[in-house]
Amino acid sequence: MSTSTWFSSTMMVLVMTGCAPDLGETLGDGSSTTDAPAEEGGGPQVQHEDEGDGVTVSTIDATDQEQWIYLDLESREQRDPADPADSDEWDLGLRRFAIAINGGSSGTGGMEAVMLEGTTFDAVTSIPTEGWVTDAPDGDDENEDPDYALDEWYDYDFMTHVLTPKPVVYVVRTVEGNAYKVEIGGYYDEAGTSGVFTVRWAALAPG
């Protein structure tokens, strides 16, 4: 084999190999996109499941970085208010780890909430008489977020960045004046995606 033939044939091999096919196209092939079907629709990002004894377990997909997911407790419907800051359509708003109530700095619905420690969801049967607060503008703390009435719901692990619900129960008084007890059950879906809340809640009879 002559030198030039040798040279050109080896170079040809290299040229013909070219670049590899795209890996990205293999994503979203359905093999691992099995989101659980809704038990009962409350909206595109909200699903409810009745646990009995008037307790609802809602799964709320608040994974979006920008979009708030609004929920009206009485109707159990997901809402999409045109102007959430001036709307009585919603009670709870969720975005990532933030939970807003329709009151104070978050809305004009006049909502308030109480955080109860050292108790359990089932043990809360009456409406507290004191400790009511509402959402407030950012105060003197580490972050730059508003001081939500429900901003103490989690423990944060600095090493793993995992959020774990604290053993607390909130009681909220809605825009319509009804009281509900609310417990955050989890922040991750079965696939481990963060921003997917599991919320247990039930109405409290006026006492």
């Binding site: 994503l27 093999s31 691992s32």
Partner: peptide, 8 residues
């Protein structure tokens, strides 16, 4: 490719 979801 997240198993069970496409979120991540």
């Amino acid at each position: 490719d997240q198993r069970g979801s496409t979120a991540l």
